[in-house]
Design a protein around this nucleic acid. Structure first.
Lengths: 355, 355
DNA sequence: CGATCCGGTACTTAAAACACA
DNA sequence: GTGTGTTTTAAGTACCGGATC
């Protein structure tokens, strides 16, 4: 076993080693490395061979120091474990990787202080930009703060209300409208919107879409009961029970997320009300189609949002253009919880003619 | 809007700026920064004030270059979106952060080639060590390869069979034994183990634990049917249907993961067999207690594994000691799918006396 | 406290190759 | 054949910002 501890790290081969082996100068080797400059093909190949022979590993730190820029992007989300963010990150990493950038991930735990620490962390790594899902408790003009730090950025999924700030996220108004319109088509006339934090704009946006749909169908907005909650399935259970125990049962429940819907399912079963109410979710997580009944939901295609966000950042740092507020079209994924399978919720459909 | 593009990044304040403002030398400022050396408290405070005033941001690249070490650790997992890994990463980041290290995350998509690329990426960032969930298709002696790269590391959750390699993961033998023993206590006498890849050691280990429990109860090992599958819930549905359609229905089904159990639940419902078979999962994901019936499962406490892995790495890079193969104790989480609620599966318990 | 070092990068300079009058 | 101009190719070197002596 070789001697190895914090103080005696072995230095690897440098560009100078490569250059000497290839019989060229360090500068030339650098040009070959970056595929730029005017170097003959024969020399290029010799340098590349030399790199392979000595097991050369690029030193980003050295490059960053001189050029004061790194091909590195920071990604900051609230909860790494959230599958939605997992897909989002996947889309981002893939698109950024294809453009030659590497990513550093950080997680804020949805806490503003930790978020500040993470940003400092990323800045000390000299990231060229950050893609950030802002913490719920972020300061209102957070985007401007980042601008003052000269840090190109794009907000993901959540925005702070400033429509001039760089942002990529789902069209929540449309998503809310799609879900509500579908339930109205099924004949539902009374509704509850369960879950989600009032502090987040996407909730008010979805609500607006829902009310647009109600208005279009000539249904009074008072037909929509509204109960917020935390973001876990447990919160969905809690708020589901709250609805059942303190309100008349609506024809349909629109859940703020699939996770919430999961808790609501359980609340309905606990009260013996399973499959007596139409339910929709939001997000379309991987297991949604395996539930009982399979969940009708709104897909926001997080990977596509990630790819678009990568584009947004690249446009900023490579072309200096800021695309501003970008909204992505969600999709209604129809399964069975809305009542779309006749042999499952036919009792409901019998009393409410499908339009 | 300020002019900002790839080529005209603004340089921030340096340690020299801080030093001049505080009226000390750069060397002194460096000592204050790292909380070392003999510097008077008055000077320390002056330097700290100066840092705050000029908005100083530590430049890790510069530090890394000189000291050839970064307080940065790489974390490489197969799927960032997997909630299990999310918790694992959370535990790692917290423990490493407390020790003054920052983390860089990468994802291999469970592909060996991508894993190689990610390792190269992390090496170019000069990480001091990596915590890695190896891809299923990793080469057998992967740990030795990393040793040859002089890269301290610890394998997480999965190991390659080399018990001398640095590893932290759950005790799969015990986990399998706990689940099986509990089902046997319930009176079950025929079993199926569903899901999981044969290529991964943890599967054979859990199976060994299950057979230990069978042997201890005097039940022949042929009482355990074994069907592997992919890792998603959809795979669980597939393998669940396969079991139901091609085998006699066992008393109990042990699932390789909660995700698999989810698909198995659906398979049982589709065949009209819901709550006629005892089911256990593995992992204890957040929603498991909300299922119908709430899932009895084995908790591997991924956050604890992450913390332990952080300790493992710190021991290597700071004290030069390698703790080798470390195994964490899992816990049986009893809910209802095993038959533990009398009023739910009492039909089962009537025919099979609880020990 | 000043000097030096780490390993790439950006810029300057220069040699060689080629074109064309 | 010679001289001048242009392009291609490669070398030389200052420099970035902390850490160390």
């Amino acid at each position: 076993m070789s001697e190895r501890n914090g103080s005696t790290a072995v230095r690897g081969a440098t560009l100078l080693d490569v250059a000497e082996r290839a019989g060229v100068s360090r500068a030339t080797a650098s040009l070959v490395l970056r595929d730029t400059g005017r170097v003959s093909e024969a020399t290029r190949q010799r340098v590349r061979d030399a790199m392979a022979e000595v097991g050369y590993v690029y030193n980003r730190s050295a490059a960053a120091m001189r050029s004061n820029s790194t091909k590195t992007i920071g990604i900051l989300v609230t909860h790494i474990g959230n599958p939605f963010f997992g897909e989002l990150i996947g889309g981002l990493q893939e698109a950024l990787g294809a453009a030659g950038y590497s990513c550093i991930l950080a997680s804020s735990g949805d806490d503003a202080a930790q978020q500040d620490r993470a940003i400092a962390e990323l800045r000390s790594h000299k990231v060229g930009a950050v893609a950030i899902v802002p913490a719920t408790t972020s300061r209102q003009d957070y985007s401007r703060e980042l601008n003052e730090l000269e840090l190109p950025h794009v907000m993901l999924t959540r925005h702070s209300g400033d429509l001039g700030a760089p942002f990529v996220g789902p069209d929540n108004v449309l998503g809310g409208r799609l879900a509500m319109a579908h339930l109205i088509e099924h004949g539902a006339r009374s509704f509850a919107y369960l879950g989600g934090s009032l502090a987040i704009h996407n909730r008010t946006e979805r609500r607006r879409g829902m009310q647009d749909a109600l208005a279009a169908a000539g249904i009074p907005t008072t037909a929509l009961v509204d109960l917020p909650s935390g973001r876990g399935s447990q919160d969905g259970l809690r708020v589901g029970l709250e609805l059942i125990d303190t309100h008349p049962l609506p024809d349909a429940i629109l859940c703020h997320s699939d996770n919430i819907a999961f808790g609501v399912y359980r609340a309905l079963r606990l009260r013996g009300l399973a499959t007596t109410v139409r339910v929709t979710g939001y997000d379309d997580i991987a297991t949604a189609e395996l539930w009982e009944p399979p969940l009708t939901t709104i897909s926001t295609r997080p990977a596509a949002i990630g790819e678009r966000a990568a584009q947004h950042l690249l446009d900023q740092i490579e072309h200096g253009v800021n695309e501003g507020f970008v909204v992505m079209t969600p999709q209604l994924v129809i399964r069975e919880s809305c009542g779309c399978t006749p042999d499952r919720l036919d009792a409901l459909d019998a009393t409410a003619p499908v339009v």
